[in-house]
Simulated assay, not measured.
Amino acid sequence: MMFDFFSVPRICFGPGKIAVLGDLLQPLGPRVLVVYNGGDSALAKVRDRTAAAGVATTVHRQKGEPTVADIDAGLNVARVDGCTGVIGVGGGSAIDAAKAIAGLLTNGGTALDYMEVIGAGKKITQPAAPWIAIPTTAGTGAEVTRNAVVGEPSKQFKASIRSELLLPRVALVDPELGVGVPADVTAASGMDALCQCIEAYLSTGASPLTDALALKGVELAWSALPLAVADGTDIAARSDMALAALISGVCLTNAGLGAVHGFAAPTGANYPVPHGVVCAALLPHVLKANASVAAAKGNSVTRLKCIVLGGIIALQTDRPAEELHLAAADAVLDLNQKLRIPQLSTYGIKEGAVESMVSLARKASSMKFNPVLLSDQTLQDILRSAL
């Protein structure tokens, strides 16, 4: 057995933890670029604490999922203002943008120079400028991942800048910062965290460490997500979801993901659909396909893992094994309906786009970690089922 395991040097977790930010700023230098999205409350708390610590700030708003142009624009702002460190505040989009900007500050060049699949794929060779990740949503786990996801509209694709040298100095996770997040964003983000735990567990890159973490993340998210959506002020539910999202980030950066996120790369780049909605809509159909192919092909490891997921998620451990391996897919479909996750056709994805989207999804780095080989016809059927 062989595996590598990457981790953020320090994680500060818990309600009210934003209070310690001032104590963490010294390595970032005299001026930081604050990259943020979402509400202004978290930004105000960050600026209060940077000001109290005598650290100057330049604020850069990230609108939507980051593109190559966004990263290059933020990088220019940081260079012009002489920023020596970076803080990412908000959802995965803000944190991925902060991560990429911090990396390019010390490595030079532009985003496309380092992007996988659609860029030059150059290696990051220098540690990123010191930066801190402060998530306000519980979804991507970007605060502990070693890749920054960036879109390029002209290429109809999203891809990663990837290196362990991009990891933040600190992931500061305060669940109270998520209290003002709307219910629909909480639902979509939370489904992304659940999906990442599930896909990392089934991934061909999984290890005993990621398996243990992923199953805990599934357990937390499955219980807490409906509560956090129903009552955004439920700090216990917010805390469990924040931990599940963090776990999902640790798992994906060490184990990889699968076909759901393979589809997410071109889908998010070509249609105005939130990343978490893509993942939620596709997850039950990918789960069902993986379980069915594993059973048909005699893939005992994947089939057993599907059974374990069925037992945890569906809580139907009294069902026969031949049914239990499909139970997780059915339960996720039910959860989507409960959380009012829209179908992908809501965002303009139509039958005529299915074949081209499958062709693009094949190129995504996540697809190579799917536990079984899915045919083009199966992938087309999956996408049609989510429309």
Rank of each mutant, 00 (worst) to 15 (best):
L21N: 01
Q26R: 12
L374K: 05
I247M: 04
A133P: 00
A42Y: 06
G39C: 10
G88D: 14
D174L: 09
A269N: 01
P371Y: 03
G262L: 10
V173P: 02
L373T: 15
N254G: 13
L167T: 13
A111I: 04
E65V: 00
G108N: 14
K288I: 04
A236D: 12
A291D: 07
P371E: 03
P274S: 11
E152I: 12
D70L: 14
G205M: 05
W222A: 10
I118W: 08
H275C: 11
G232A: 11
A244L: 10
A51F: 00
V181Q: 06
T50L: 03
T346Y: 00
L344G: 12
S93K: 08
G108D: 13
G39R: 13
L215F: 13
L165H: 11
N107Q: 06
D72Y: 02
L383S: 09
L374M: 09
H285C: 02
K63H: 04
M367H: 13
L383W: 03
L172M: 04
R303N: 14
K99Y: 09
E199R: 04
L43P: 09
V117T: 15
L213Q: 07
A142M: 02
A364I: 13
I11Q: 02
R31F: 03
T253P: 01
L257I: 09
A44C: 00
D174H: 10
V185E: 06
I101D: 08
Y201W: 03
V260A: 15
S154C: 07
D381A: 15
A100K: 07
